[in-house]
Amino acid sequence: MSTILDLHTHSEASEDSRAPVEAYLNWIKLRQAERPIDGIVLTEHRQFNRDADYRHLEDKFGTLVLRASEVETTYGHMLVFGVNDDMVARFDFADVRLDAQILIDEVARMGGIVVPCHPGRPNIGLYEHYQSRPPLQNVVAVEALNGGSRKGEDERSAELIAKHGFAATGGSDSHLVSLIGLCATKFSAYIKTIDDLVRELKTGNYEPVDFRPRRKTVPHAVAMETR
């Protein structure tokens, strides 16, 4: 039994989004045919809200809602899965210059996993940092598909993944309700809790899935004339 999760989403708890979690779940229900996802992981910017509780919405919509965080490091932005009290005490999530290697190792030691996101993005992705500095140790997976990528960014991510043999995830990085689930990750296992997710992320038994509508053809690339 497989599970498809959007591993990278932002709700109104992030300063640059106004999307309510309930509206996300409603949109997923509405677009189930095009974006068949089983759940979302909220990765609010530079924070982890221990007290947020979405169980009533999970029950109402039958969609899994898990919580993680997107933090900013010396090697770009990274998703932290399995956040617990130890990590919250150890790191200032609002610090935009977290040491990437220490974060990866400490989070692993405390039972979680760090996944660098949009690695092909200028300045805040791993690819650019790897051009000028030594690679990081103990990276298991990176985000291969990101719903907010500009042209060429996912391609650079693919190049990095091929070179280093990382496992690959996908996430929409949605800040708007209607963009939820455009990219996601398909796990071969059944996932019901954040512990399941962390365990599975460590195995590498998953693949990114792309539910973005096909990009429309760039007008000048079409030279055909119809009569």
Binding site: E15, H45, R46, E72, G76, H77, A94, V96, R121, P122, N123, I124
Partner: peptide, 10 residues
């Protein structure tokens, strides 16, 4: 007032 990193830097 807050800091954040993006495509164009700090």
């Amino acid at each position: 007032i807050y800091e954040k990193t993006g495509r164009t830097g700090m």
